[in-house]
């Protein structure tokens, strides 16, 4: 892993929200790197802070603490024009395809918006870039360029969103549940398109989703979050075969496979995640973990490497039991 160049370095990222006088710790100290050209999948259940993490990286949500270094530049201390400029290297695609596009603007203007903001291309050059981008994502610009965004269906809107996000030639793309609102057949089209564009444009991806199968399909490495903390991070194939964190194991066994012969694990995780207003002491998963001991309540497990490139935050990682 050391020979790869780190594109995004996240250290001690924290995001706190104030809610009715109380502090909700949505993201509680995340450390991870994303290497150039890879796809890191980020999974977890709702409320685990995965979307907030993505938004904090883009600084649409202000991080309470921590540093974000993108391509050698520290983002958290930036302000104003510098931040706006630097942030174009990283783009984000949102979950709701319809709401991502201004219903009152024309498709070609939406895709050209980043170019217009920066005046980076004008006239014929601008039109050519927009034409190419729309063509590339499968929306015929000659026919549909002048249409309003509100006339398109979810899958098409997501294609247009992708085209827009590529206009400034970003290095990195953050995909926040970008296919979860789409039908299976459309979802597959978008996932394949994303894989192709990643190659063509040399993109690095952070792919945030709750669907484990979708995440595995696109990711080189996967990180699992629970209640604002990272449980486990490692190569996706390895981690799906031999999860080290009990939570990852339960998540995987709860995932439904479209195969009547798939092993239906009866070990379903009981209970629900506790409130982030009042997280449990020590390991945040301990209240639902069948293996929890007193140590788990008193001491917070730190993310430690079990095998090269595979780290887990658990006092009793499962791989050691297996070995």
């Amino acid at each position: 892993m050391s020979n790869k160049k780190v594109l995004l370095e996240v250290r001690n990222l924290e995001v706190n929200f104030k809610k009715a006088g109380q502090v909700v710790s949505a993201v509680a100290g995340l450390n991870f790197d994303i290497y150039e050209g890879e796809t890191l999948g980020l999974v977890g259940e709702s409320g685990c802070g995965k979307s907030t993490t993505g938004r904090a990286l883009m600084r649409i949500v202000e991080p309470t603490n921590g540093t974000i270094v993108l391509d050698g530049k520290e983002l958290t201390s930036m302000k104003g024009r510098e931040l706006r400029q630097e942030r174009t290297k990283m783009q984000m695609i949102f979950q709701d395809p319809i709401s991502s596009l201004n219903p009152r603007r024309r498709v070609k203007d939406i895709v050209a918006e980043p170019l217009d903001c920066w005046g980076s291309a004008e006239g014929d050059e601008r039109d050519r870039i927009v034409f190419d981008l729309l063509n590339r994502v499968g929306i015929d610009p000659a026919i549909y360029g002048n249409r309003y965004a509100r006339q398109f269906s979810g899958g098409q809107c997501q294609r247009i969103s992708i085209a827009r996000s590529l206009a400034m030639r970003p290095k990195m793309l953050i995909c926040d549940e970008m296919v979860s609102a789409l039908d299976v057949s459309i979802q597959a089209q978008i996932l394949n398109l994303l894989e192709d564009l990643k190659e063509e444009y040399g993109l690095t991806l952070l792919f945030i989703a709750h669907d484990l199968a979708v995440v595995k399909n696109v990711s080189d490495r996967v990180a699992v979050m629970y209640l604002g903390k990272m449980c486990e991070i490692g190569p996706s194939d390895l981690m799906y075969d031999a999860p080290a964190h009990p939570y990852t194991k339960f998540l995987l066994s709860a995932a439904l496979e479209a195969n009547p012969d798939s092993i239906q694990d009866n070990e379903v995780l009981s209970g629900e995640p506790p409130s982030p207003l009042n997280p449990p002491s020590g390991c945040r998963f301990r209240t639902r973990c069948p293996f929890a001991t007193e140590l788990c309540a008193s001491q917070e497990p730190l993310l430690t490497e079990v095998t090269p490139g595979h780290s887990v935050a658990c006092h009793y990682p499962l791989t050691t039991v297996k070995a």
Binding site: Q187, A188, Q189, L212, A213, D220, E257, S262
Partner: peptide, 15 residues
Amino acid sequence: STPKVSNPSHTRLIT
């Protein structure tokens, strides 16, 4: 076109 957990990552989906 449904991605599957049992398939290795970067399995090309047939759309």
